[in-house]
Design a binder for these strands. Structure first.
Lengths: 154, 154
DNA sequence: TTAATATACGACTTAATTAATCGTATATGA
DNA sequence: TCATATACGATTAATTAAGTCGTATATTAA
């Protein structure tokens, strides 16, 4: 699950819209500036998200983009899947983009990749914009040091 | 963590060598055939793995490749990191290839990506060729159905 | 009504990465 | 000494990611 820039940008903007939810539209110019996303590139991303029904647009003066769904009704899994296509590390363990591999019956490492995909998929599918927004940004002191893992107190 | 073909091929071959460990060299031709890997492409992969000290080569008749380390001394994490460079879904939560992101202090989803990277990194770092080899191939009945997750009885 | 300010959207470009292939040199041992 | 291996740099082909550009259209505040 390598995140593309597109997905990264989309998520940044979505959380900006969540933060502003119910307080009118934000123009692309502003969304691009606040999240350090190339404006012309963001146009396509927003259009794409509008088609998915996640955001809505209002043209003209005072126009811009608003969230079209409740933050609790959109998951990170949906967003990542839409832009990157796959959550799994390899096609043969993907639920949504399964691709048969000739080695499946003898493959020794498929099981562990399945484990990885299951954890990540469950994590991302239960992560709504609302629930993730509430979990505040990671403070400096909380960040891992190399070798320090989840469960070690983070 | 999207696995490249190169990593996939490398792992396939490594497990073939684990299976054959202590019973002499296997020529590339055979490694390529058994694992459905393009032979000329595999040459580079083997060379690369030789440089890493994971395999060793014997030229001439009866030559080929053998495992150069004990299967318990090589982890899947090392192999994936070597060929794909990064285990984390994004640079800002990578321990080995950390890349600062200007949005870090305000990013809402960094925490959850860190969670994903921590689980996967720990899983792959503890997965030695030996331990993974012992966990037999996944049988058909054990494979997920869409929606069925780890912990649901798999 | 019109000028300013938005989004809409296809076409195009550029850069990077991935996944190879090819030719040839060199080492080994039966 | 010849058949059979690996060694290894050069090159290419295909795909994807990332971003730019021109222009059309909708809205509304003055």
């Amino acid at each position: 699950m390598k995140l593309s820039k597109k997905t990264d940008y989309a998520l940044r903007v979505l959380f900006t819209l969540v933060e502003h939810h119910g307080r009118g539209p934000i123009p692309i110019r502003e969304l691009a500036r606040r999240n350090e996303v190339p404006k012309r590139f963001l146009e396509h991303i927003m259009l794409d998200m509008k088609a998915k029904g996640w955001v809505d647009s209002l043209p003209g003066k005072q126009g811009g983009y608003v969230l079209a769904k409740e933050p609790s009704k959109v998951t990170m899994g949906e967003v990542i899947r839409h832009f990157d296509g796959i959550l799994a590390p390899i096609g043969c363990v993907s639920a949504t983009h399964y691709q048969r591999c000739s080695q499946e019956s003898v493959c020794r490492f498929r099981r562990i990749l399945l484990d990885a995909r299951n954890y990540v998929a469950r994590l991302m599918e239960q992560a709504t914009l609302a629930s993730v927004f509430l979990g505040a940004p990671v403070k400096e002191r909380e960040v891992f040091a190399p070798g320090l893992m989840a469960g070690d107190g983070i």
